[in-house]
Nucleic acid binder design. Structure first.
Lengths: 193, 193, 193, 193
DNA sequence: GATGAATGAGAGTTCATTCAT
DNA sequence: AATGAATGAACTCTCATTCAT
């Protein structure tokens, strides 16, 4: 049960991002998502185990695309500094162009209990690994201090960027998220040297 | 209605942190908190408006104590660098000694919708202001770059420390959170110079 | 949880017999019982675990009264033949005066799965034991054949009486159930001799 | 609609007995039967009106075979006593060799409401009629008391045998059901004399 | 102030049945 | 005839909140 594929799977997913972003996970009824997707309530349960499952799948699909896109971009970079800049820019630019996605990722996603470890941690780990690899490579190539703990540095970098997105999501006035990539990069890269 | 003071007010608050940390906000029933606090269900509603109100009060009380304590500590510092170190150390040390508090602050608090702006933003702003003041002072006294945007720098600093706490809360293996204060400080302070 | 006592417990129980008898267990909504009992839907769940629980309690309460009443009547009998007659007469007369009870016992009760063993078997066993004791006593006192297996005889007796009640319950035309006690007794008692 | 014949009709019927016996009528989903039968969900509705219909057809087919077989066996009997013995033995032996069938007949069948009169009563009546004919013949030929009401006697006989089967079905320990035919017959035949 | 029984709105989920292919 | 994806009505149970005592 729970097909997790097919045309309607993505239709429902798209509907869900929109509604979750607008009303929040707990205030959203499955019936709302179904109506927005133009399917019957029961149809949702052909493609998803339960309501939470929609949120988790949402994140997994988005994260897969994100990591895929970031990986491609990192391949084009010539050195760790460029890579770090790419990570920060890609993170901010991508979420900056997908406000609904960002809202769900930053706010709604953190509302689940059990599934959080199984469904969310893993895809997130892929991203974390990518960042840590940039740091390690930077250390090996002499760009960054050897005494840095790559994991701690990753937490600082991810936390910083993540908070920048959260503030943007929570902000009432719209502004260009991608524009913050440069100052954030400059602040962080110095810390690594 | 909603006294928000008195002996039982704090009894209920203490019970709530424990239960919220253990089971999460949405999984916790008001009756659970009442039982843990040794009062009747209805009594909770003498001291709090509604369930969400408990969570908000929890945060406000904790944040007030936090900002109060941090302010006192900043007064003893001689320069912006010491102050920044104090902020990071105080944040990590305080939450590191209050796991339940940390769990609720990092995870459960982000599950409310309307109240988040009214009840949570304000106390958080006090903390943000404190950080930004350290940065501005640092710029005025020539410790940090003038081209830095204080708000962006604050987001980076807070986001970094916050993520470090979140990782610690989510971690299955216990470790000393305060011990991360030094490397995190060193990473961030360089970025500001 | 599930108080299973108090004034409203019995109010709900009485309402349930009526509604179950009229519409059947599966066609009855908890809301129907609540309305008939004059309480809120949720109140039902203060006194009963779940819907099935109402049916089981119904039977247990009724069976306890039944066995209690039958026991008293058997004490007044002078010999096994009188006792057997009393069993059959009491069974038919009691259910004959409680059509709703009878309907539920004969038809609706047999629709549960797990609970059937725990909640229903035990009280029924008390009744079975009572019948078997009459047979055994009859054998000891020389009233009935020694080569009879008491358990088999009990099944025959109970099955016979039970079927007579079922036919009465299913019958569209009303007739006096107690009136069948004598012929049924005569048929069965001869078989035991 | 509802062919009620053909190869798949019987395939589905066989699958249904198995599943009904194992999980009970209400717990069984039409999809479960379809899967067990190796057909699509929709195919079930080519052969049956609705879920209940499967149960009713199951009983009708089984009862037709049962009455047919019993009739043939009664023809070979020389007197009413032999016939009564044959009825009891055939009932117990047949169901004793078809546990799934027995489970469904004794327990699951009694869970329907409207259809019970139309679909189940009629085939059962054929069996009842057969039993009553044996009694009436016995009275005419002087084997049994004239003051017996044939219908009441039939209820006693059927109820007794039915209960013996029910106990066997509900029993956790397996035992030979056919072996009870003799003692049950001896008990009942004496009552008729 | 304190209690806890009572309330009743609310939503997730199931599954018999249909029907376009 | 056969399929199985889609439907949507149906219903149990939960739990925040109230209020008479």
């Amino acid at each position: 049960m729970a097909k997790r594929t097919g045309e309607k799977y993505f239709t429902i997913l798209e509907a869900a991002v929109k509604i979750f972003a607008r009303h929040g996970f707990h205030r959203t009824r499955v019936a709302d998502i179904a109506r927005e997707a133009g399917v019957a309530d029961g149809t949702v349960y052909i493609y998803f185990e339960k309501k939470e499952d929609i949120l988790v799948c949402l994140f997994q699909e988005a994260m897969a695309r994100f990591v895929e896109g970031l990986s491609r971009r990192l391949e084009q970079c010539e050195n760790p500094d460029q890579k770090l800049a790419a990570v920060i820019d890609y993170h901010l630019t991508t979420l900056g162009s997908l406000p609904d996605q960002a809202k769900v990722t930053q706010i709604e996603l953190r509302q689940i209990d059990e599934a959080i470890n199984k469904g969310i941690s893993l895809p997130l780990m892929h991203y974390f690994k990518l960042i840590e690899e940039v740091i390690t490579e930077g250390q090996e190539k002499g760009f960054y201090r050897r005494d840095l703990n790559a994991r701690t540095a990753r937490k600082v970098i991810f936390g910083a960027v993540d908070e920048v997105v959260t503030c943007w999501v929570m902000s009432k006035k719209p502004y260009d998220l991608g524009g913050l990539a440069k100052p954030v990069f400059e602040l962080l890269v110095k810390g690594l040297k």
